[in-house]
Design a binder for these strands. Structure first.
Length: 590
DNA sequence: GCCGTTTTCGGCCCGACTGTTTTCAGTCG
């Protein structure tokens, strides 16, 4: 299976060829744009192909779409192969080095006939050590050093890090930055600020009118391992944790422009620029320039920046270069859901010990209730995994489930006695496996005592698309099954989501009033944002749950809310923003 | 190669930093 990341890589290789051999920067850029767009998709390009929507990816036109179709059919693209043969293959290995682009890579590979991608890096190292590389004009000491270090460290950063990994790193640095007296403000930029599920680079912006002093202070952050580059307005450092971070300075006058510019996304900015050109305005991180008068409008806030272009404020989560500008022009940017709208968490695992259960929670009900009160929740729903009941009779199973319910109710009563106020209501549910054939891993009569069931795929991820679609719809057809848990089953950077006809599932959920979960566990964030968007557009209700296996994890709710916002969710799209009263009818309890 | 509310032809973002240059090219975001 070809991943989006691999497609992006292929497109970039071809782009490099066009740049080197044809000097065709525009064609190269077109390929790079397509690469970026594909890479940033959260749905697989293959799914889009099957829906006939490849060309709906901004930057993917009929030509590239056709190449991708060939790729999925035959596993290769003849056109790409032909183009790549025009340069020595070793060039592509060199492109992976930071600071080495097509020009340098080709120069080396061409001059020294590096025809084997696999051995190219070690050959280049020999060339440096033997002093042969310095014979090429333009290859001074520092550039060689940079290349050598890069080859030796073999630091291949193929994967983007999880948002949840980047967040604490950035927050630590931001707290330090805000403690510098001359710093007026500090914010994250890029994919981090747009709350993308995975983050490429960590970029931070600092607002000050004392650039020199502040940059000097920035470089004294104790967590810095080494300074990679530093200038008046931009520095790049590597932290002891290994993370590379860019810090950009802005004056208060250009703060809004800089935030906007570097928050991106690239596609959003490209579209914003072409829109501005119609008004004879050109955009940069320093402000908005009137091309007729040459005057530069300085935007102190992002709100003013967008306002100057005649647009309402667009939240960073929506800035993906999709339909946000069209909506903004019509003043139809929705009021997105916020963490404070959330009134409860319906996917929580307690420490109730089934005789044989998988993935037991660690916290007792008391801790979960404490945490829920702390979060201001009106209700919580316990949804432990269905136990593995092999070899037990139905009545035996029933007794065990009854024992759990009794215990939870008893504990809840005790809690009520101890704590008098603001006690969240308790719903007793279960998270039930969807078997390969769509049967639930629990007999129907045993579900009667549950308030609700979350049904989830936990096995047989590799089934064919039609089989997965059928099993999910069959499982959801059960009257107690109101929530589809972590629908795609993806684990970020570990496992792709299952293949399924999501539009069919979404339509089923809409028709049958089933709720799709936005699982807030940072490694899941599932539904993914793009499917959320489709679900919401089709009128499906969602609920944001943490899937906590310990009370402290209930704080993950924020990750789910950010993901939902990226999927254009408003408060009304999210079932657990409802009051307990209204939620009961959604869960068919009344 | 992509794109389109002036365009289906003729555009395509642009500024900061580094290194090897004595005035600029390459890379990055």
């Amino acid at each position: 299976m070809v991943t989006n990341q691999q497609i992006a890589k292929m497109l970039r290789r071809v782009a490099a060829v066009f740049e080197i051999k044809d000097n065709d920067f525009f064609r190269a850029r077109a390929y790079e744009n397509a690469a970026n767009a594909v890479e940033n998709l959260t749905i697989s390009a293959r799914d889009l192909l099957e829906q006939g929507k490849l060309t709906e990816i901004p930057g993917v036109g009929p030509n590239i779409a056709q190449h991708l179709e060939e790729l999925f059919k035959t596993g290769k693209v003849r056109h790409f192969e032909t183009e790549e043969r025009r340069v020595p293959a070793g060039m592509f290995a060199l492109l992976g080095i930071r600071g080495v682009g097509p020009k340098i890579a080709f120069k080396i590979a061409h001059e020294f006939r590096l025809d084997d991608e696999k051995t190219a890096l070690s050959k280049v190292k020999q060339l440096i050590v033997s002093g042969k590389l310095s014979s090429l004009p333009g290859f001074g000491e520092k550039l060689q050093q940079k290349i050598q270090t890069s080859i030796e460290s073999a630091f291949v950063k193929e994967e983007r890090m999880l948002f949840s990994e980047a967040l604490p790193v950035s927050e630590g640095f931001l707290n330090y930055l805000k403690s510098i007296p001359q710093v007026i403000n500090a914010e994250p930029l890029g994919s981090l600020r747009r709350r993308v599920a995975t983050v490429g680079d960590i970029d931070l912006a600092v607002c000050t009118d004392k650039a020199k002093e502040v940059m000097a202070a920035v470089l004294k952050y104790p967590e810095i391992h080494k300074v990679i580059s530093s200038g008046e307005s931009l520095s790049r450092v590597q932290l002891k944790s290994g993370h590379e971070i860019d810090i950009k300075l802005a004056t208060p006058g250009e703060w809004g422009s800089l935030l906007q510019h570097f928050t991106g996304s690239k596609l959003h900015n490209i579209q914003l620029r072409s829109l501005s050109l119609e008004k004879h305005l050109s955009l940069s991180e320093h402000g908005i320039k009137n091309q007729k008068t040459g005057k530069i409008y300085q935007a102190e806030t992002e709100k003013n920046f967008y306002k100057h272009l005649g647009l309402p404020y667009i939240p960073p989560e929506l800035r993906e270069g999709e339909e946000e500008l069209e909506m903004a022009k019509k003043n139809q940017i929705p009021q997105l859901v916020e963490l404070t709208d959330i009134k409860g968490d319906l996917h929580l695992h307690s420490d109730f010990e089934f005789e044989t259960s998988h993935d037991l929670g660690q916290s007792p009900l008391k801790d979960i209730l404490d945490k829920a009160r702390n979060l201001g929740y009106e209700y919580i729903g316990l949804s432990d995994h269905n136990p593995k009941f092999q070899g037990l009779t139905t009545s035996h199973k029933k007794n065990i489930l009854q024992a759990r319910k009794n215990k939870l109710i008893t504990q809840y009563r005790e809690y009520e006695k101890d704590v008098k106020t603001r006690i969240p209501k308790l719903l007793i549910g279960l998270e039930i496996d969807i078997r390969k054939d769509g049967q639930l891993a629990l007999e129907e009569e045993l579900t009667n005592d549950l308030d609700y069931a979350i049904v989830s795929v936990h096995s047989s991820f590799e089934l064919k698309k039609a089989e997965n679609t059928a099993r999910i719809i069959k499982a959801l057809s059960h009257p107690k099954a109101v929530i589809l848990g972590h629908p795609t089953g993806r684990m970020l950077n570990q496992r792709e989501g299952i293949e399924a006809d999501w539009l069919a599932i979404i339509n089923f959920c809409k028709t049958n009033k089933k709720i799709m979960e936005v699982n807030a566990a940072p490694a899941r964030l599932d539904l993914p944002d793009d499917l959320i968007k489709i679900a919401v557009r089709n009128g499906v209700k969602l609920c944001i749950d943490t899937d906590s296996h310990a009370a402290a994890q209930m704080d993950f709710m924020q990750f789910g809310v950010w993901t939902a916002r990226r999927g254009w969710c408003t408060k009304k799209d999210i079932s657990n923003t409802l009051s307990y009263q209204d939620l009961q009818s959604v869960l068919n309890l009344k």
